[in-house]
């Protein structure tokens, strides 16, 4: 984890495991009418923070924990989303509404389905042959799981940045121009040049704009024709973000974008995400709770079994979670 990360976000205090622990005695918050709390959980909770629980406590997920009222429009409306990988039930009946132009963080222990959820928002799960998706995902009111959906258009609107930087083995310029060229928005091929309608100038403008937006322009403007694989990890990841911006998406999905980076590069990416949220809807998966607390407006917590347990304003989720399991998780008792 990036304890050493310089915290750049100032409007929201960074939280560490210890501070939450100190603020809220775990026993006190436990609802009295919770019938399913096991003794094992009680024991560990009572003994203090040095223990790890063997797993999660049993508790009934309540509907109101997942309700979150926000102002403005919902970008995504997900209803009863189930995803199976073969016999594995990766997501169970997830319903969530994601607001526009904000940062939504998805947190949870590994294997809880948060990446699966993210990938079902732009149908990247279609790549996995054994995956089966039931339920409904609407973007701006339009169902994306129905016949006749144009995947090209969907993925243009919903861009994605992956866990480890994956630039194409091409030049920096070609990396940025790749999407628009493939979608026919920019033509620079030999045929276009022959017909005298090459958009090289427009392409270069676009490349600069995207790189500036991704805070990379200053570092690479003198070597746009170099192979992108020669950049450092952090630069590669920002290049991937710039590449994602080049097709003018409405939503940017990020799957642990900083997990493979060092603290300084992480800080840059986090700054960038904050800027992006003014113009784009950002949904970010992270296993780093401090990161989620720093950068997100609202947080959804997935726990084992692919369940959405709690969803709400980030401050509320981190400071005053409804669910005991969520509290255990964010205080570091398991996960």
């Amino acid at each position: 984890m990036s304890e050493t990360t310089p915290t750049t976000k100032t409007d929201r205090p960074a939280k560490t495991d210890q501070s939450t622990e100190a603020d809220q005695p775990t026993e006190a918050d436990q609802p009295a009418n919770e019938p399913d709390v096991t003794t094992a959980a009680d024991a560990t909770n009572g003994d203090g923070a040095t223990h790890t629980t063997a797993g999660e406590t049993d508790e009934q997920v309540r509907e109101e924990w997942r309700e979150y009222d926000f102002e403005g429009m919902a970008k995504f409306a997900v209803e009863d989303l189930d995803v199976h990988y073969g016999d594995d039930h990766a997501l169970q009946g997830v319903s969530i509404e994601i607001p526009e132009n904000s940062v939504t963080a998805l947190i949870g222990p590994s294997g809880c389905g948060k990446s699966t959820f993210l990938r079902s928002l732009n149908r990247m799960n279609d790549r996995i042959k054994s995956a089966r998706v039931d339920g409904s995902v609407r973007i701006d009111g339009q169902e994306i799981y129905q016949d006749g959906v144009n995947l090209v258009e969907l993925r243009k609107r919903v861009g994605m940045v992956f866990q480890s930087p994956n630039p194409f083995p091409k030049s920096i310029r070609e990396n940025i121009a790749y999407g628009p060229e493939k979608h026919g928005d920019i033509e620079t091929g030999p045929l276009a040049r022959l017909l005298g309608r090459s958009d090289a100038a427009a392409r270069d403008r676009l490349v600069e704009e995207c790189l500036r937006d991704a805070a990379l322009w200053e570092e690479v403007n003198d070597r746009l024709d170099d192979n992108a694989l020669g950049l450092s990890g952090g630069q590669q990841q920002r290049l991937c973000i710039a590449r994602c911006l080049s097709v003018d998406p409405e939503v940017i999905l990020m799957d642990e974008p900083a997990s493979a980076l060092d603290p300084i590069a992480t800080a840059k990416i986090e700054d960038l995400i904050e800027q992006l949220s003014e113009e784009y809807t950002v949904v970010i998966v992270t296993h780093n709770m401090q990161q989620a607390a720093r950068i997100s407006d609202q947080t959804a917590v997935f726990l084992t079994g692919g369940e959405l347990v709690e969803y709400g304003d980030t401050d509320q989720v981190f400071e005053d979670p409804h669910s005991e399991r969520v509290e255990d998780y964010i205080t570091g008792k398991f996960g």
Binding site: F168, K182, H183
Partner: peptide
Amino acid sequence: PESMKSGSLAMGTTDWQ
């Protein structure tokens, strides 16, 4: 690497592209 292919697909290109 699969990540390169996914990266391209996530840009909205077809698998043939």
